[in-house]
């Protein structure tokens, strides 16, 4: 990552992370009720252009997870870590399960999402904590 990449925001995406960070997370919903993650102009399911922000459900359910021992360089100092896909209803999110031993993570676990920082480069990432 160069300095310029760190300072230029990704519109839509960084706004969504800001919202999660301040406890007001949201997803996008089209008029047919399909959920998706920003930035988007069109619903990826049906092409609808009437997307509006809806509050992200407070908790999700872990659908699957791994224990990553060999990370990409951007997470060299973070490994090992647990990466999970959690189902929040209208959308699923990919994030790291924190605050619990890897052995104690399970499919079906109820989690909430927050923003954490990579130990390697300080970048923001989605973190799941058991609720």
């Amino acid at each position: 990552m160069s300095d310029s990449e760190e300072t230029v925001r990704d519109r839509g995406y960084d706004d969504a992370l800001d919202a999660i960070e301040s406890g007001d997370g949201y997803y996008l919903e089209c008029s047919a009720g399909h959920g998706s993650l920003p930035p988007r102009r069109l619903c990826p399911e049906c092409g609808d252009d009437q997307l509006r922000e809806e509050p992200l459900p407070e908790t999700g359910r872990i659908d699957t997870y791994n224990i990553t021992e060999v990370p990409a360089p951007a997470f060299a100092d973070d490994a090992p870590y647990v990466l999970a896909i959690a189902d929040f209803g209208p959308v699923r999110l990919t994030g790291q399960v924190q605050g619990v031993d890897p052995e104690d993570v399970s499919v079906g676990m109820t989690v909430e999402v927050e923003i954490a920082r990579s130990e390697t480069n300080g970048e923001r990432l989605l973190a799941f904590r058991e609720r």
Partner: peptide, 20 residues
């Protein structure tokens, strides 16, 4: 944005599919 930036690797992705 939504996968790699949070720690996804390719073995990691297939590990998620394997557990699922």
């Amino acid at each position: 944005l939504w996968e790699v930036g949070h720690g996804m690797t390719f073995p990691g992705a297939y590990a998620l599919m394997a557990r699922a």
